[in-house]
């Protein structure tokens, strides 16, 4: 049993009071709780507002103007958005971006999960293998893109050489309107896997082993254990991986496209972020670029809400 006087002293010193005998004490406790919460959360909220919320609002506002940074901005209402509807390049960029999202996010989740399961076992050279899988994290996006440019070179790149060993004629990759976007997607997946892998690995190591053992005792085979025990156990992480990958695919693919294809050939890799950059910085058309950014923001919000939406009858 605690000494009552010690307990009272501890409560008085505690920054977060969990209870009290009087109504006044409750109010004081709540105020103190809010104060401490504000103290800890405040700086984060402030920085988030300065660097995220305000720029987003700024982009929304700017999308209603025509502005080249040089002459005073001119209010044009929704003209930038109507201009977008009649701009085949904008439509093309949205379609290409959708392809990249579908082709990039889902494989990243599946591959990183499978790899995490594979390397979540003990075998000689485990540390080396894990380090190799994490390699893309320590290579800059630009360097990765240059490296992949060589790997995919149809003349002497090793990718086509390997395909040729199996009698498969390798495509022209970055020189082909059919294969350039898949090539960019492959590089994007390669870049996104390490983060997803780390998250899945952490989640796998937190799974209660007794559940898996119980499954084994009940006769569940590997795939059944995967389907009914492991996959549901890492579902919260899958949500996180999806959002992180989605963000990465949408925003961080710029470096890959800029280095590998510049949006070509024939705009086959002209994703929205590439078009936004060119509209803003090549043409100084900041109003239109902001309108495109607003569209990208809306796409991200819709996809995020879709991903985080709670499936019927399933608790996460």
């Amino acid at each position: 049993m605690s000494d009552p006087s010690t307990l009272a002293l501890a409560q008085a010193k505690s920054p977060i009071r969990r209870g009290g005998n009087k109504a006044g004490g409750d109010a004081l406790g709540k105020r103190q709780t809010y104060m401490w919460a504000a103290l800890f959360v405040g700086p984060n909220v402030l920085l988030f507002a300065i660097f995220i919320i305000i720029p987003i609002l700024g982009a929304f506002a700017l999308s209603l103007f025509q502005w080249n940074l040089i002459r005073p901005p001119v209010f044009v209402g929704l003209d930038n958005f109507t201009r977008m509807i009649n701009d085949p390049r904008a439509i093309n960029s949205i379609v290409r971006t959708a392809y990249l999202v579908v082709g990039g996010v889902i494989p990243t989740i599946l591959i990183s999960f499978a790899l995490a399961v594979l390397i979540n076992t003990k075998f000689p050279g485990l540390k080396l293998i894990r380090t190799l899988y994490l390699m893309p994290i320590v290579i800059s996006f630009v360097a990765s893109a240059v490296l992949w440019g060589y790997l995919l070179d149809p003349r002497w790149g090793p990718v086509n050489w390997v395909l040729a060993q199996f009698g498969i004629p390798g495509p022209q990759w970055l020189e082909s309107t059919t294969w350039a976007l898949p090539a960019v997607t492959i590089v994007t997946i390669w870049l996104r896997i390490p983060v997803a892998l780390v998250l899945y690995l952490a989640a796998l190591q937190n799974i209660n082993q007794s559940l898996i053992e119980a499954g084994q005792l009940d006769g569940a085979n590997f795939f059944q254990r995967m389907r009914f025990i492991i996959w549901p156990s890492v579902r919260p992480v899958t949500l996180l991986v999806t959002i992180v990958t989605l963000r990465g695919v949408l925003f961080e693919s710029f470096d890959v496209v800029a280095v590998m294809t510049e949006g070509g050939p024939l705009r086959s890799t002209d994703i929205l972020i590439n078009y936004i950059y060119q509209a803003a910085f090549d043409r100084l058309d900041f109003g239109y670029a902001s309108a495109l950014a607003v569209v990208l923001f809306v796409i991200v919000m819709i996809l995020t809400l879709f991903v985080t939406g709670k499936p019927k009858g399933e608790a996460r």
């Binding site: 080249n68 020189e175 082909s176 309107t177 510049e262 070509g264 050939p265 024939l266 705009r267 060119q278 090549d282 043409r283 100084l284």
Partner: peptide, 21 residues
């Protein structure tokens, strides 16, 4: 000065149309 970006872009696209398209 701002038009040079448009010129570069249009001619790159024309080049792709000739070479690839």
């Amino acid at each position: 000065a701002d038009a040079q970006g448009v010129i570069d872009e249009a001619l790159r696209y024309a080049e792709d149309q000739i070479m690839v398209g």
